[in-house]
Write a protein that binds this DNA or RNA. Structure first.
Length: 209
DNA sequence: GCAAGGATATTCT
DNA sequence: GAATATCCTTGCA
């Protein structure tokens, strides 16, 4: 157990890039925090994917539906959805309100609250605790009740930052899709062991998508 | 270190 | 009925 908290500061909605792809890149190296009565869970975001407007693989592609309304909220709201009948995915809305777009959190490097996460994923080694979108939500106990939650409040489940400035970011195509496979919309922290899937660079760090 | 196959719920590219 | 933003186990190299 850690006595001293990491100096994570909440991200305000105005701090977030409005553009979906820029937001997905921006979130690499930021922090996902969950304050609970039992203590704090936190981790460093090391892998994301962008699901921009007009992308046929986006859950918002066919317009607003009862299940995808959170993707149409102002930037920084959680969109939680079940895939393959087993795994919940944690996403965050992007673009202006009324516009359906978002980014998917694919992996985090667990930092605080390790005991909490290990209890939810018995037997998993530290490296695999939150490596993959389904594992991430499992380890952190994130389910459908978080759909629509505002991640910019600095309370409950929220996003934050420690380091200022831009992190080095790798880019590849997204994972698990059968369409739009060519688009370089997956972002990750180069060299991190907590990234799921390929860690070979498509584009050089700091290049724009 | 891969590759293949099964489980499972919701939507309808 | 088919597809899906996945994970786990088993088997093989």
């Amino acid at each position: 157990m850690r006595n001293q908290r990491l100096p994570i500061l909440p991200l305000h909605r105005d701090d977030l890039p409005v553009d979906t792809i820029e937001l997905a890149r921006f979130m690499i190296g930021k922090y996902l925090v969950h304050d609970l009565p039992e203590g704090r869970i936190s981790g460093r975001v090391v892998e994301t994917e962008a699901y921009p407007v007009g992308d046929s693989t986006s859950h918002a592609f066919m317009g607003r539906r009862p299940h995808n309304g959170s993707m149409f909220l102002a930037p920084g709201h959680a969109y939680v959805r079940l895939t393959y009948g087993l795994s919940y995915m944690l996403n965050m809305s992007a673009e202006a309100e009324q516009t359906g777009a978002g980014i998917l959190f694919r992996a985090i490097e667990p930092l605080e609250g390790l005991a909490f996460m290990e209890a939810r994923r018995p037997g998993a080694p530290l490296r695999d605790l939150a490596r993959g979108p389904g594992r991430l939500t499992m380890a952190r106990g994130i389910g459908p009740s978080f759909d629509g939650h505002d991640l910019c409040t600095g309370r409950g489940l929220w996003i934050g930052v420690i380091e200022q400035g831009e992190a080095s970011v790798g880019v590849t195509t997204r994972i698990g899709l059968s369409r739009e496979m060519h688009r370089p919309l997956r972002f990750f922290e180069p060299g991190s062991a907590f990234v799921s899937g390929p860690r070979k660079l498509l584009l050089t760090p700091h290049s724009r998508a």
